[in-house]
Amino acid sequence: MGKQDTEMLKGVLEGIVLAVLARRPAYGYEITAGLRERGFADIAEGTIYALLVRIEQRGLVDVEKVPSEKGPPRKVYTLNTAGRDKLAEFWTTWSVLAERLEQLRTEGD
């Protein structure tokens, strides 16, 4: 991924993580691994953990500590109502931007 791709991804990463959590609750490593499987190979695990802290602080997820077979308990994140509202807002914004970008791309064709 190039520098421009990385910068663009940073701008939408919160929405991407909220979309992942809308499917099912998950813990940090699970989210990172799932994103890598979907082609987001350059996302650092630390980036996801920092984002999870921010969305937890903003009240977009509920967190439950569950025992782990190895090491300390895992924090499992579940999207709550505020998180679902924020995700809906993200998809609306994404649709508007995508439409406008497509218009710019095809103008004059």
Rank of each mutant, 00 (worst) to 15 (best):
Q57R: 15
T106D: 13
K65E: 14
I31Y: 05
T32M: 09
D5I: 06
Y49L: 14
F40C: 07
S95P: 02
E107F: 14
T106N: 11
M8V: 13
F40N: 00
D5T: 14
M1E: 06
V20Y: 07
R58W: 02
V96D: 02
E56Q: 13
G2R: 11
I16K: 00
L101C: 02
I55Q: 08
E56G: 09
V17Q: 05
R54C: 01
V12E: 06
D5R: 15
D85K: 06
V63I: 13
R74A: 05
G71P: 12
E56Y: 02
G71Y: 03
W91M: 12
R54H: 07
L35V: 07
A19G: 07
I55S: 03
L21E: 00
Q4L: 06
T92I: 13
G11N: 11
K70A: 05
T81C: 07
R24D: 09
K3Y: 11
R36P: 03
G11L: 15
L79E: 05
L21F: 02
K10P: 00
P72N: 10
Y29T: 08
E107G: 02
V66W: 06
A19D: 09
D42K: 11
K3L: 15
E69V: 10
R38F: 01
Y77A: 10
D109I: 04
R23P: 07
E37K: 15
R58D: 06
D62C: 03
T32P: 05
T32R: 13
Q4Y: 08
K86P: 05
E99C: 04
W94R: 15
E69Q: 14
I48C: 03
R38G: 08
T78N: 01
D85P: 02
P67L: 12
L51S: 09
G28Q: 04
T32Y: 04
T32I: 05
D42C: 05
E7I: 13
K65C: 00
R23M: 06
L60D: 04
P25N: 15
R23F: 10
E102N: 12
E107Y: 14
K65L: 14
E7F: 09
E37V: 10
R100D: 05
G2P: 01
N80L: 05
V76E: 03
E64S: 10
L51I: 05
Y29Q: 15
E37R: 15
R105L: 14
I31E: 01
V76P: 03
A19T: 06
E56T: 11
P73Y: 00
L13V: 03
Q4P: 08
L9A: 08
L97A: 12
L13N: 01
W94Y: 12
I48F: 05
S68W: 08
Y29E: 09
A98H: 10
G15V: 09
L21C: 08
P25Q: 15
L13Y: 02
A22D: 04
A33G: 00
T6E: 08
K3G: 11
K65T: 10
A22I: 04
L51V: 01
T6F: 15
K10Y: 07
G28P: 11
Y27F: 11
A41D: 08
K86E: 12
R38A: 14
L21N: 06
T93F: 11
K70Y: 14
R58F: 08
W94M: 14
L87R: 02
Q4C: 03
P72F: 01
K75D: 04
L51A: 05
E102D: 01
L101F: 12
G71S: 08
D62T: 09
G34Q: 11
R74E: 12
K70F: 14
E107R: 15
A82K: 12
